[in-house]
């Protein structure tokens, strides 16, 4: 299966949609890594480097958006959601301005750079801000479609992309992306795995493995973390009776928390969360780190079996 990093897809999407939409792109000295340089090469007059100054970048984006621009502000997730949290909260989300935050290098799969650059808290941080939409696409096609959906959405959007090349799952001709909608990508009746980002192919592999053991496991791709698709979660809870979430993020505050909130209030069923377990990352090869922190098909399958014992 072909592999592409979602950050590459982000760059491709900006270059593609720069043709038809009046978008402006800002970056904080990371354009070669965030891949906004793809846009910069094609539309230099609409690309502005702010230097290593994420706070200024976010509020400058707000000023541009107040004048009618659709602005993409790009940096690593750590600095976009972490360093510039308050600018995103007060400068962008409070006035509900049309700024799209392209946050790349999210999660532990950043690899060798280590814990300082592996943001495992961004979904949790961004999820608590009113007006914010959070998209965490799983592959190349979904990333491109998520960028287009973000452009069409009026208001702030946090787009989460990864550094690591990940399998291309979806077909652009047939895949429909809609903000706020989860997608059932594998059918099942015994349990449901709700996955996001690079954990989606892992979830698919886990479900395939479990099928071989006689278990029918549903897989839902949850690219929109906020607003979370309550209907698809409640339906899965009612029809399969057990849920496992899988994300490349701290189990506190991210997809697992969002799903747990929906279940607790609407349809409580046993659940397990796969993610980093309130720990910082470390340096290493991405694949080795994903293994070390349990972000694998094997661990998802194990958690499905655990959750089934609780039914």
């Amino acid at each position: 299966m072909a592999k592409t990093a979602t950050r590459e897809a982000y760059g491709m999407a900006l270059a593609e949609f720069g043709e038809s939409y009046d978008i402006v792109v800002l970056d904080a000295d990371l354009s070669k890594s965030t891949k906004t340089d793809t846009f910069k090469k094609k539309f230099p007059e609409r690309f502005f480097n702010t230097g290593i100054a994420e706070a200024n970048m976010m509020t400058t984006a707000a000023g541009l958006a107040s004048c009618g621009k659709i602005v993409f502000a790009s940096s690593f997730a750590m600095f976009a959601a972490g360093r510039a949290f308050e600018q995103v909260r007060n400068g962008i989300c409070y006035p509900n301005l049309n700024v799209k935050i392209g946050a790349t290098h999210a999660g532990i799969s950043v690899g060798e750079d280590g814990a300082t650059h592996q943001c495992l808290e961004d979904i949790g941080i961004m999820r608590t801000i009113p007006n914010m939409v959070i998209l965490n696409p799983a592959d190349k096609v979904e990333s491109i479609l998520a960028v287009e959906a973000a452009i069409k959405h009026e208001g702030p959007v946090y787009l989460r992309f990864g550094r690591l090349a990940v399998p291309e799952i979806f077909d652009r001709e047939t895949y429909k992306f809609e903000i706020g909608k989860g997608v059932e990508i594998m059918e099942g009746t015994d349990a449901t795995i709700i996955a996001t980002g690079l954990m989606v192919p892992e979830a698919m592999e886990a479900a395939a493995k479990l099928k071989g053991e006689g278990l029918s496991v549903r897989v839902i791709n949850m690219a929109t973390i906020k607003p979370i698709d309550k209907d698809i979660i409640v339906k899965a809870a009612k029809e399969t009776g057990a849920i496992v979430t899988a994300e490349e993020h701290n189990i506190i505050g991210g997809l697992g928390s969002a799903v747990a909130e929906v279940l607790a209030e609407n349809s409580p069923v046993p659940m397990k969360r796969v993610g980093t377990e309130d720990k910082f990352g470390q340096s290493g090869k991405p694949a080795e780190l994903l293994e070390l922190y349990g972000l694998t098909a094997a661990n998802i399958a194990k958690q499905v079996k655990e959750v089934l014992k609780m039914k």
Binding site: T60, G63, S66, Q87
Partner: peptide
């Protein structure tokens, strides 16, 4: 023209508005 109150941010927003005018 711009929400403000968190110090240091207004001048950055003004930069963005000025940049939009230039674009």
């Amino acid at each position: 023209d711009m929400s403000s109150g968190s110090l240091g941010q207004g001048v950055c927003a003004a930069n963005g508005m000025a940049l939009a005018g230039k674009i």
